[in-house]
Design a protein around this nucleic acid. Sequence first.
DNA 1: ATACGCAACCGACTATCTGTCGGTTGTAAT
DNA 2: ATTACAACCGACAGATAGTCGGTTGCGTAT
Lengths: 211, 211
Amino acid sequence: MRIVKEAQERKNEILDVAGRLFAAKGYDHTSTNDILEEIGIARGTLYYHFKSKEDILDAMIDRMIGQMLAQAKALAGQKEIPVLQRLTMMIQSLQERGSCGDEIMEQLHKPQNALMHQKIQERLSVEMNPLFIALIEEGIEQGICQTDYPSEAAEMTFLYANIAFDELSVHSEEERQRKRAAFIYNLERLLKMEQGSMQEAIMPLFGDEPE
Amino acid sequence: MRIVKEAQERKNEILDVAGRLFAAKGYDHTSTNDILEEIGIARGTLYYHFKSKEDILDAMIDRMIGQMLAQAKALAGQKEIPVLQRLTMMIQSLQERGSCGDEIMEQLHKPQNALMHQKIQERLSVEMNPLFIALIEEGIEQGICQTDYPSEAAEMTFLYANIAFDELSVHSEEERQRKRAAFIYNLERLLKMEQGSMQEAIMPLFGDEPE
DNA sequence: ATACGCAACCGACTATCTGTCGGTTGTAAT
DNA sequence: ATTACAACCGACAGATAGTCGGTTGCGTAT
């Protein structure tokens, strides 16, 4: 028995399932058959709504980036919170990739997901950087930090945060701690902040001051 | 008429052709048929020497990284050249990817090459970082620069050099200039060098002082 | 109520591609 | 000349992305 739905509803249904499968098995290892069988639609239907498998991936990433961006914008806009703290919160929020859960994160570095990874990374970089730049410029206005190249400093910060932390090369908890300390240290230098000012901004978030 | 060659010779022949095709058409868009037809061997022969298409890619990257690493090591070891200048030379040498030419660079950001890109990037990062760290520590010993986190500073430097410069987002020559200036500026800050000391080290290389 | 038009849906089919396997041939040593 | 084995062959199986002509249900006009 045939079920007809509005196009947008079907599209979302497809993206939901595709997203879950991509996160669970990886992009390459998820066939279009996997998707349409799980939904219970025919091949033709899938290709009626999307023109290719990659098109599905792109749409899924669009949705995901949209969610993350909304969240990040909400964070960045809370002027009553100190700038540095907001900066930290944004970096923190990057770790939990989208509301769709972070199983996708664990998958992201496997070779089967190189395409997905690259696309997410590029989009994230393009969309998030303006927010970082704005925060840094706000910090400059407040005299908290200083740099001649705010946008490049933002880019560097974002890149390092993204790659250094989500890299699988971070094996031990010990190493993670060190990376975080180094990140703060380097960020303070990049933005010519007082030594330790970033650390102070972070502590209320993590509650992880040295015992 | 059948031609028999020594295994290593055939392997190299396959890697040569594969490398050229990957660079020209991208990894995904190069079929194993393309490779074996151009060489004039049968399917079975290809899979006698390599266990999968991805295996070919890995071997090709191995060779390429090996070449780049040898070159970089030669550079890094020239103790008669000032440290900062050697640092610059190494970053510079990353731009021209391997001897196999830089057509591969132009292809690298297309979606069809995400896998190749990711693999090259990861290998490069793992192999090159020790060299960067060594240079930075040499600089610290000489009192030219200072940091509590040499290895993380090296990682950050490498990441930014790689991504900021090879990114296609660098459209205009103007932007490229700005990025380079920002890179030097930020590197000086990260390593607590005297303002302009890096610029001085670079000038003899490029001969591009402001007119 | 009936006819009409179209958006949503169907599923068989094609084209392509990776990897396998049993068998063959050249070559070098005995 | 015999043998052993490394290198090679090509037909084949299995999987997968994308196409296309045809169908069906639903809203709308008559």
